[in-house]
């Protein structure tokens, strides 16, 4: 491109401005450059409609819900919050939900790591194995619950096998209680955890472990000193995602759990308040508290993540 032929347009590398434009080309280019210097990309303005959509569809109801929670049918603005924390039947749902979702998320992350670690290289049948491990995503909670009832229920295959082999005399109760919900959460959450961990792992330069091997590190030391520290931030993110998925568990808590007792999770309490007692302020309060508890857990995990090395996972240049 010859700069001398069109001196007025030297600052315009793309040349896509219409030639008949009234504003001097130089000024428009300069504006773009000035914006770019401040980190403003004009094309990001294209995101404005989407942002508005999010605002209208999510932020507004959220604000409405928070507002509603401070307008109880009787008492001061914090009456429903007080009621929630004084009524053990309501208060304990937080604990019930956490005692399901935290171990389930932890187990999912912990189980994903060794499996993904074994599968990080290339091998025959990797795609098939990945597909099999990921299938539960497509099933959905209800089908999973159905399967669990068939498999782990009092007359399911699992108990029938145990009875036939003679390991127990009575069927072990694994559904319609804590364990049914726990298994259901683990099964539906695992594929997410696994896929995430696998992709974090394949982002780690494989020559790092080989370098560690030439320096005398055995497989455990290589994993413990090289791979795990580089993977840990990804594990934190994975934990947060699977935790959030597990925390709002509702269908399996009803279908394979004990929704009136041991698996009365917080979302059931919210459902009861809204659609059984028609106490909308209380339902809104429970929803707000649900969000707060999630935020606290995530903040704790991300706070820990911030202490870790989170930079590049490549071994150098080239």
């Amino acid at each position: 491109m010859s700069a001398t032929a069109t001196p007025s347009r030297t600052g315009d590398p793309t040349g896509d401005d219409p030639p008949g434009g009234r504003a001097p080309v130089g000024v428009r280019v300069a504006l773009r450059h000035r914006l770019a210097e401040r980190g403003v990309d004009r094309q990001l303005l294209l995101l404005v409609p989407a942002a508005l959509f999010v605002l209208v569809l999510f932020i507004y109801p959220f604000g409405y819900g928070v507002g509603l929670s401070f307008q109880p049918t009787e008492g001061g603005p914090f009456a429903t919050y007080q009621e929630f924390f004084t009524d053990a039947y309501l208060r304990d749902t937080i604990w019930t939900t956490l005692s399901l979702s935290l171990p389930a998320a932890l187990l999912n992350v912990a189980a994903s790591v060794p499996i993904a670690y074994r599968m990080r290289g290339r091998f025959r049948g990797k795609r098939l194995l990945t597909t099999v491990l990921v299938v539960p995503i497509t099933l959905g909670t209800v089908l999973t619950a159905q399967g669990l009832l068939n498999f782990l229920g009092p007359t399911g295959w699992f108990n029938r096998t145990l009875l036939a082999v003679g390991l127990t005399d009575d069927p072990i109760r694994l559904t319609n209680n804590y364990w049914g919900v726990f298994f259901s959460i683990v099964i539906t959450g695992f594929p997410f955890a696994f896929l995430l961990v696998l992709s974090y792992l394949s982002g780690i330069d494989p020559t790092l472990e080989r370098a560690a091997a030439t320096l005398g590190a055995n497989w455990w030391q290589r994993f413990r000193r090289i791979t795990l520290p580089l993977l840990a931030p990804g594990l934190a993110t994975t934990f947060c995602l699977t935790f959030v998925l597990a925390f709002s568990v509702f269908p399996s808590a009803v279908l394979v759990g004990d929704p009136a007792g041991t698996t009365r999770v917080i979302s059931i309490a919210a459902y009861d308040a809204a659609y059984v007692q028609y106490d909308y302020p209380m339902a809104a309060t429970i929803a707000v508290l649900m969000g707060l508890v999630e935020l606290l857990v995530i903040a704790a995990v991300l706070g820990w993540r911030a202490l870790l090395y989170t930079g590049s996972t490549a071994g150098g240049k080239g």
């Binding site: 020559t207 370098a211 560690a212 030439t214 090395y309 930079g311 590049s312």
Partner: peptide, 11 residues
Amino acid sequence: MVFQNYALFPH
């Protein structure tokens, strides 16, 4: 061993 991309432990 010295690797072509150095393979330094980034953390």
